[in-house]
Each structure stands twice: as C-alpha cells, then as structure tokens.
Design a protein around this nucleic acid. Structure first.
Lengths: 144, 144
DNA sequence: AAAATACTTGACGTTAACGTGAACATACAA
DNA sequence: TTGTATGTTCACGTTAACGTCAAGTATTTT
C-alpha cells in the first residue's frame, strides 16, 4: 500500500488529533465529515486528506466558528461544486463577524476587569477600617 | 404603610430590574433569596432591602460569578451568623480567581484575533492571485 | 359581579458539543 | 482458539440559567 493512500482507523486518528472517537463520529453525524465506512464493512477508514479535513474543522472551531456555521460552509462547498472561489469569501465573512464578536468580548472583559478591581478595592478598604459598619456592602451595588 | 417598609410584588420587582419573574423565583429556588411568601398566602412580597439583594446578585452575575458560587457565599454568610468580616475575604478570593480567568480569556481572544487575521489575509492573497490552485486552502491548517 | 390582569405551582423544553454505558461484532496477538 | 483491544450502533445524560406552557387562584379594575 503506497504511503499516500494509507488509511487509518478511527482510534488512531483520535489519538493523533487528541480528540475522542465520539467527537469524530459526531462530526460525521452532523454532516461535517461524510461517510467513511468502506463498502464491505462498517468500519471507518480515514485517509490523510480526511484527517486534514478534521484538522481544518478543529482549527475553525478554535477560531470560534460553530459546527453549524461550518456545516453551512460545507453545504455551499458541495452546492458550488467545490468552487473554492465562492467559498473562501464566505469563510472570510464568518471570520470577520467573528472578529467583531471577539473585539466586543475583549472590550467587555476589560471593562469587567476594571469593575471587579474597583469593587475589590472598596472591599479591602472596608476591611482595613475596622470601625466601620461593613454590613451594607453585601447589599450594595458596586459601580452602579 | 411607611415608605421604608413598602412591599412590592414580583411583577413590579421584575419590571424594575428588567428581569423575568421566573428568574426571581429561580433565584429563590436555588437558595439565593429566601422565601418571601407572607404567612397568610402564597404571594411573594419584596422589601427594598430584598430588591437590593437581587441587585447584588445581578451585579455579581455581571462580574462573572456563577449562581453556585453565590450560593456558597450565601451559605457561609448564614453559617457565620452574617459576620461580614468572614465573608468579604471570600468574595475577594472569588473575584480574584475570576480576574485571572478574565486575563486568560483576554489573552486567548487576543491571540485568536491575530490568528484569524493571519488566516484571513492568506485567503485574500489567494483570491487575488487567480492563477493559483486554491483548493488546498480548505484542507490546510492555518498558522499551524 | 364580571372581566382583565397578575400570581401560583409544577414540569418539560432549550442549546452545544459531546460523554458515557450497553450490548454486540471484528480483528489482531499469543 | 482464546483472549483482549478496538470497532459498531443506539440512546440517554450532562451543564447553566432560565423559557415556556398549562391550569388553577387571587387581585384589581370597570
């Protein structure tokens, strides 16, 4: 068997990618992976290309793209007869809107950090002034 | 009825805080709010202090603290006979670990943004060189 | 008092992305 | 051949924080 046509079973692939076999079957289940069971039997075999496809899925996931979004892309990829030129702009759109979401999240988290720090500081101040009545803190709305 | 002892029904409170009545009942259900049903009947009444408590819960939630964590605090608050001195350091601890989580998230998102931008740029480059074979992009693992 | 509005208690539904277990078939090692 | 590792297909479980009925009670308005 030539090296390029080498096939792997699901467990090998899973170990290689450090994911569970369930995950791989799940990706197939939701239509991200196509049926890899060979005619004869029910056992799945994956070529290197298919493993790359899995890697690609994992990468997109890392990039914050949901499986549902990926499916959309995949469907269009088929519909357009694998015309990459039609697909890539779509991917860019998704990446862009994702970038926006990320910016928003970063901003929110940054504000949150400031907020928490302020609240934290107020608590510490209270703890260091033992004569004060601290009971109100619990019912107080910080930075509001 | 003096103003300070004024009681509100759940719907009024909900509108005031812009949350659902279900949410308020849920907070009671998970032990964050104590039973506010008056002896005689089954209708809940909330004093301003209790509305403040709700505000406090909402604020902590904004700060990324889960209801489960709040419950912990609340339980200790009761256990310690409402000794604020024992509770506040605990709150600080939680806020601190939350801050750490936020830092991590910000870092991750920032790296992600860079990553996405890089990938995005590569796609655009490909789209602008019409002679190239773009089919590989889909199976390629960006920045890996 | 009738109608409209608000409150009550269940209790199942929702979302994402798998985890987990059962019960069985297949495959390679000793 | 017998074990043991690995594969298969269901199908229910998980998590958080409520949403959403349904069906009945209470309050308030007209």
């Amino acid at each position: 068997m030539s090296n390029v046509n080498e096939k792997f079973k699901i467990g090998q692939v899973a170990r290689q990618l450090e994911i569970s076999t369930r995950t791989i079957r799940y990706y197939e289940e939701v239509g991200l992976m196509g049926d890899n069971r060979v005619e004869s039997g029910s056992i799945r075999f994956y070529s290197k290309a298919e493993i790359l496809r899995l890697r690609f899925i994992l990468k997109l996931k890392e990039l914050g793209i949901t499986l549902k979004e990926m499916k959309k892309i995949a469907v269009n990829y088929e519909l357009n007869n694998q015309a990459t030129d039609r697909i890539l702009p779509q991917l860019i759109d998704i990446l862009d809107s994702n970038l926006k979401g990320i910016e928003v999240k970063i901003d929110n988290l940054t504000a949150l950090r400031t907020d928490i720090n302020g609240y934290r500081r107020r608590i510490i101040d209270l703890l260091q002034q033992p004569e004060m009545d601290k009971s109100q803190v619990v019912n107080e709305c910080p930075a509001a």
